[in-house]
Simulated scan of single mutants.
Amino acid sequence: MKTTVRGIDHIGITVPDIEQATLFFEKAFGAQVIYCSVEPGSQNIDHTAQQHTLRLFPGTKIRAIRMLCLPSGPGIELFEMHGPEQGHPARASDFGLQHFALYVDDFSQAIAAFTDAGGKMFTEPKPLTFPDEQGEGNAFCYGQTPWGSVVELISWPSPMPYEKKTTLRRWKP
């Protein structure tokens, strides 16, 4: 089947404080601000249209929107929203997007930057154990941003066994 999909352009993350979140992504992952669609305090946004477009809970106001880039991979679009009914970030057992993963070359350095920026690790790096992912040095660990989003740090320097079964490949920076 032919598709026009080329890959993930960006992920959107709702955060309680866009300045704190921007600083976290800069310190933890070397992200840089590309542009601000809506500056904090700007009145240049149609809240009614945004409620319809994003299916926001009635009364929710977008305070700021900012696009970041990482050294490699999709962009990260931060939304600071405030509304009468906001929940906590999804847990892995909840429906919907549950985490995003970042490829790292050095776990020690990545974890130090993550925790120095205010993140909390759930696990230490451990080997990828699913049969199609195993390989020397292939590992992952999980942590949480200051506002509660789950982040996976992953690295697979060795070829994965699935590569012997198909020509399809996971994206790797």
Rank of each mutant, 00 (worst) to 15 (best):
L23G: 09
G12Q: 09
M67A: 07
E133Q: 15
T129W: 03
Q144D: 00
A113G: 06
G143R: 09
E39P: 01
Q86W: 03
T60S: 09
H82Y: 11
Q144S: 02
R169A: 01
I13T: 03
I111G: 01
R55Y: 07
D116L: 12
L68Y: 08
A31D: 02
P125D: 05
K126P: 00
I11S: 00
K172Y: 05
P161E: 04
I34S: 09
T48V: 10
L153G: 04
A49E: 05
H47L: 09
V5M: 07
L56G: 02
V104Q: 00
F100K: 04
K120V: 14
Q32G: 09
A64W: 05
I8Q: 00
L97P: 00
I65N: 04
H47S: 06
A113C: 15
L128F: 06
I34M: 11
D94L: 06
D46K: 09
E77K: 08
K61A: 11
F29W: 10
G73M: 15
I62P: 00
G119I: 12
F24P: 07
D9H: 14
P84Q: 07
F130Q: 13
T53V: 12
N138M: 14
L70M: 15
D132A: 12
H99V: 10
G143P: 08
K126N: 01
L102W: 01
C36W: 09
I11C: 04
I13E: 03
R66L: 02
L70K: 13
V15C: 07
P71A: 06
D132R: 14
E163T: 03
Y142R: 04
A110S: 15
E19C: 02
R63L: 12
